[in-house]
């Protein structure tokens, strides 16, 4: 069956670390980084990139629109 694999790009400098995407992700891909951006926010990043399906849930809830989503079909 064709499966989807996804990946997100977070605009680190614009991310405010509100954590809403972390809860919205159904596969637990996103976490907040230990380091901070130039404004002092712990930005979101892919902690577990293998699990990303590219469902766009994180980007849809992001209040600041900092997430770009890519998705590719792969044969598993």
């Amino acid at each position: 069956m064709a499966k989807s694999k996804g990946s997100i790009i977070v605009d680190k400098e614009r991310c405010k670390g509100c954590e809403i995407c972390v809860l919205a992700c159904p596969t637990g891909v996103i976490s907040l980084a230990r380091e901070v951006n130039s404004k002092g926010y712990h930005f979101a990043y892919m902690e577990n990139p293998e699990a990303c399906t590219g469902c766009t849930n994180c980007a849809v809830v992001c209040p600041d629109g900092v997430i770009t989503v890519y998705r590719k079909k792969v044969n598993a």
Binding site: K5, G6, S7, I9, M46, P49, G54, T56, A59, V60, G65, V66, I67, T68, V69, Y70, R71, K72, V74, N75, A76
Partner: peptide, 22 residues
């Protein structure tokens, strides 16, 4: 998984599904 797909293979313009609107 048969096919090993890295992030660099996924992050391509043809695979873009969501980005901030213009």
């Amino acid at each position: 998984m048969v096919e090993n797909t890295g992030i660099s293979d996924i992050v391509k313009d043809e695979n873009l599904v969501y980005q901030k609107t213009k």
